[in-house]
């Protein structure tokens, strides 16, 4: 079994403008999806959700607000799953509700080194 990091990206600023009912229904979809991964005993770390906004620090003490000045999609959260292969991890990522808000999932194997 290998650990894979699943990174969720979407336009969360736009997403937050949705109705409370829509937001609640999305929360349920996320909970059901992650619960389903956990039920297969493939959830290695439930990860975290990230607040929108933040700071990016570059060399030369260059500090800017948010990672998203140029692009609309920002990192919204992550989980770690354990699967036999990247194909299996991808299969799981296909069920993610993030696509319903136009987002994307990046699947990366966690290096043991």
């Amino acid at each position: 079994m290998k650990d894979f990091l699943l990174l969720f990206r979407a336009d969360y600023v736009e997403y937050a403008k949705r109705s409370p009912e829509e937001l609640q229904s999305m929360t349920k979809k996320w909970m059901d999806w992650i619960g389903g991964i956990a039920a297969q005993n493939k959830l290695a770390d439930r990860g975290n959700r990230l607040e929108t906004g933040g700071r990016v620090i570059r060399s030369g003490n260059m500090i800017t607000d948010g990672p998203f000045c140029e692009i609309k999609e920002s990192l919204g959260g992550y989980i770690v799953i354990k699967t036999a292969s990247i194909d299996e991890a991808t299969e799981i990522a296909l069920g993610c509700p993030v696509y319903q808000i136009g987002g994307s999932v990046e699947v990366r194997e966690i290096s043991l080194m």
Binding site: D32, I34, G35, A38, A39, N41
Partner: peptide, 18 residues
């Protein structure tokens, strides 16, 4: 019940809970 099981499984996997 479903949401409580989702949370329980995220905390600790058991076949019964699954």
């Amino acid at each position: 019940i479903l949401q409580l099981y989702n949370k329980l499984l995220m905390l600790e996997y058991t076949p019964v809970a699954a």
